[in-house]
């Protein structure tokens, strides 16, 4: 399926930022499930190129704005041809998958998560265990925007019993690692004409012997297929963040995000540059 993505992020600073630095992980990679036909990232209209590619295969760019900045607009847009691989991506990035067993503060398992992992571990084989775990996550959490915030941990979300895609993914990752299955956090886009999402989506990938990395979306209880565009990954949401910035202390920051995913080509005008 041919999908076109436009992802706009606007930051406003009060008082204006003087030294602003951004790290962008906004470059959709080519994978077994997606071919990137066109992709560009701009900051206030100027194109930005990636500086390095990390061990998980994500390209990163650095942007430094030294002038007084009242607001900055970051746009990632492009066209991706997706294929249904039932979530199976194989090898992405050079790092040993076992590194993704590393826990982080947002994904540290508590007794309740460990109990959930033990239940899923009763299944036969890593793939079946992950499907079971994903079902357990969906049973344990209601999709409830506002119930959690960006810093909510997997254990806290489980105690609350609800959250958004980030919390579902964190819980699935924490449980997978507790079972000894390497897992990572993925940020991307979801094409859903019935209920268009105005923001990025998040899910998880687990490393399954013989298959490589396999995606699991615990919110929708599916493995990401044609309607998913993969953007970036990390150990957790903080690590996978498409945009990370620093500015000098004492500034208020406001952020607006708008994501549009549509089937078909990018408009002619957007293909330029």
């Amino acid at each position: 399926m041919r999908l076109t993505v436009e992802h706009r992020t606007r930051y406003a600073y009060e008082p204006p930022a003087v030294h602003l630095h951004l790290r962008l992980k906004l470059f959709a990679p080519a994978t077994a499930a997606q071919a990137v036909k066109a992709w560009e990232v701009t900051v206030d209209g100027r194109p930005v190129e990636p500086l390095v590619r990390d061990a998980f295969g994500d390209a990163e760019a650095l942007v430094a704005l030294r002038r007084k900045t009242e607001s900055v607009e970051i746009i990632a847009r492009g066209t991706v041809e997706t294929t249904d691989t039932a979530g199976v991506l194989g090898r992405i990035g050079a790092a040993r998958p076992e590194v993704a067993l590393r826990t982080t503060p947002l994904t540290r398992p508590d007794a309740a998560i460990e109990a959930m992992a033990r239940e899923a571990a009763g299944e036969d084989g890593a793939l079946a265990r992950m499907h079971r775990l994903s079902a357990l996550v969906a049973e344990a959490l209601d999709y409830r925007p506002g119930a959690t915030e960006a810093g909510t941990t997997a254990a806290q979300a489980l105690a609350i019993g609800g959250g958004v895609c980030q919390d579902f993914a964190h819980l699935l990752i924490a449980g997978a690692r507790a079972m000894g299955v390497p897992a990572r956090y993925v940020v991307g886009y979801l094409h859903d004409p019935e209920a268009p999402l105005a923001e990025t989506h998040a899910w998880a990938e687990a490393h399954v012997h013989g298959l490589g990395w396999v995606g699991f979306d615990p919110v929708h209880q599916v493995c990401p297929a044609e309607s998913y565009v993969r953007l970036a990954s990390g150990f957790d949401a903080a690590d996978a963040a498409p945009i990370r910035g620093t500015l000098s202390a004492g500034h208020e920051e406001e952020m607006e995000v708008a994501v549009r995913v549509s089937a078909g080509q990018m408009q002619q005008q957007q293909q330029q540059g």
């Binding site: 990390d54 061990a55 990035g93 050079a94 790092a95 590194v99 067993l101 590393r102 150990f235």
Partner: peptide, 13 residues
């Protein structure tokens, strides 16, 4: 891999 001093960002550098 679980060591606090391990820096995953150094993988492949």
């Amino acid at each position: 891999y679980q060591n606090a001093a391990f820096q995953p960002a150094m993988m492949g550098v």
